[in-house]
Amino acid sequence: GGHPVTTQMVETVQNLAPNLHPEQIRYSLENTGSVEETVERYLRGDEFSFPP
């Protein structure tokens, strides 16, 4: 991942996926670069990993 992630982006995802840890959200956003894509992954039931 190398996309810039803002606190705003993390908070937006958190509102839609409250049971995800912020670190999981941030890591996913760094890989996708997209709030929409991260939320899609969540709704699909994809696994969210923590940063290594």
Rank of each mutant, 00 (worst) to 15 (best):
residue 1 G to E: 12
residue 1 G to T: 13
residue 2 G to H: 13
residue 2 G to T: 13
residue 2 G to P: 15
residue 2 G to Q: 13
residue 2 G to W: 14
residue 3 H to L: 11
residue 3 H to A: 10
residue 3 H to N: 11
residue 3 H to R: 12
residue 4 P to S: 13
residue 4 P to Q: 14
residue 4 P to T: 14
residue 5 V to H: 05
residue 5 V to F: 10
residue 5 V to P: 07
residue 5 V to N: 03
residue 5 V to G: 03
residue 6 T to L: 07
residue 6 T to G: 03
residue 7 T to C: 12
residue 7 T to D: 15
residue 7 T to L: 15
residue 7 T to N: 13
residue 8 Q to K: 11
residue 8 Q to C: 11
residue 8 Q to R: 08
residue 8 Q to E: 15
residue 8 Q to L: 14
residue 8 Q to T: 11
residue 8 Q to D: 12
residue 9 M to E: 06
residue 9 M to T: 03
residue 9 M to W: 08
residue 9 M to Q: 08
residue 10 V to L: 11
residue 10 V to R: 03
residue 11 E to Q: 14
residue 11 E to N: 12
residue 11 E to R: 07
residue 11 E to I: 12
residue 11 E to H: 10
residue 12 T to Y: 15
residue 12 T to C: 09
residue 14 Q to Y: 09
residue 14 Q to V: 09
residue 14 Q to I: 10
residue 14 Q to C: 08
residue 15 N to A: 15
residue 15 N to I: 14
residue 15 N to K: 15
residue 15 N to R: 14
residue 16 L to Q: 09
residue 16 L to D: 04
residue 16 L to M: 12
residue 16 L to P: 01
residue 16 L to G: 03
residue 16 L to F: 12
residue 17 A to K: 01
residue 17 A to Q: 03
residue 17 A to T: 08
residue 18 P to H: 08
residue 19 N to M: 12
residue 19 N to D: 15
residue 19 N to S: 12
residue 19 N to Y: 10
residue 19 N to R: 09
residue 20 L to H: 01
residue 20 L to I: 03
residue 21 H to D: 11
residue 21 H to N: 08
residue 22 P to K: 10
residue 22 P to C: 07
residue 23 E to F: 08
residue 23 E to R: 04
residue 23 E to D: 15
residue 23 E to C: 11
residue 23 E to A: 14
residue 24 Q to E: 04
residue 24 Q to M: 04
residue 24 Q to W: 03
residue 24 Q to K: 04
residue 24 Q to C: 05
residue 25 I to G: 00
residue 25 I to P: 01
residue 26 R to V: 08
residue 26 R to F: 08
residue 26 R to P: 02
residue 26 R to M: 10
residue 27 Y to A: 06
residue 27 Y to W: 15
residue 27 Y to V: 08
residue 27 Y to M: 06
residue 27 Y to Q: 06
residue 28 S to P: 03
residue 28 S to Y: 05
residue 28 S to Q: 06
residue 29 L to W: 01
residue 29 L to V: 01
residue 30 E to Q: 14
residue 30 E to D: 06
residue 30 E to W: 11
residue 30 E to C: 09
residue 30 E to P: 00
residue 30 E to I: 09
residue 31 N to Y: 13
residue 31 N to W: 13
residue 31 N to L: 15
residue 31 N to D: 11
residue 32 T to F: 05
residue 32 T to N: 04
residue 32 T to E: 03
residue 33 G to K: 06
residue 33 G to Q: 07
residue 33 G to V: 03
residue 33 G to P: 00
residue 33 G to Y: 06
residue 33 G to E: 04
residue 33 G to F: 07
residue 34 S to W: 01
residue 34 S to R: 02
residue 34 S to Q: 02
residue 34 S to V: 02
residue 34 S to D: 07
residue 34 S to L: 03
residue 36 E to D: 12
residue 36 E to V: 11
residue 36 E to R: 12
residue 36 E to A: 12
residue 36 E to C: 10
residue 36 E to W: 13
residue 37 E to K: 10
residue 37 E to F: 05
residue 38 T to Q: 00
residue 38 T to H: 00
residue 38 T to L: 05
residue 38 T to I: 05
residue 39 V to A: 05
residue 39 V to H: 05
residue 39 V to E: 04
residue 39 V to Q: 03
residue 39 V to S: 05
residue 40 E to R: 15
residue 40 E to Q: 14
residue 41 R to D: 05
residue 41 R to H: 11
residue 41 R to A: 15
residue 41 R to C: 05
residue 42 Y to R: 00
residue 42 Y to G: 01
residue 42 Y to Q: 02
residue 42 Y to K: 00
residue 43 L to Y: 10
residue 43 L to N: 12
residue 43 L to F: 11
residue 43 L to T: 08
residue 44 R to G: 06
residue 44 R to M: 09
residue 44 R to V: 06
residue 44 R to H: 09
residue 44 R to D: 06
residue 45 G to W: 01
residue 45 G to F: 01
residue 45 G to Q: 04
residue 46 D to L: 10
residue 46 D to V: 08
residue 47 E to F: 13
residue 47 E to Y: 14
residue 47 E to I: 14
residue 48 F to W: 00
residue 48 F to R: 00
residue 48 F to H: 02
residue 48 F to G: 02
residue 48 F to P: 02
residue 49 S to G: 13
residue 49 S to D: 14
residue 49 S to N: 11
residue 49 S to R: 12
residue 49 S to V: 15
residue 49 S to C: 10
residue 49 S to I: 15
residue 49 S to Y: 13
residue 50 F to G: 02
residue 50 F to L: 05
residue 50 F to T: 03
residue 50 F to N: 03
residue 50 F to D: 04
residue 51 P to F: 07
residue 51 P to Y: 09
residue 51 P to V: 04
residue 51 P to R: 07
residue 51 P to N: 05
residue 52 P to L: 09
residue 52 P to Q: 08
residue 52 P to D: 09
residue 52 P to A: 09
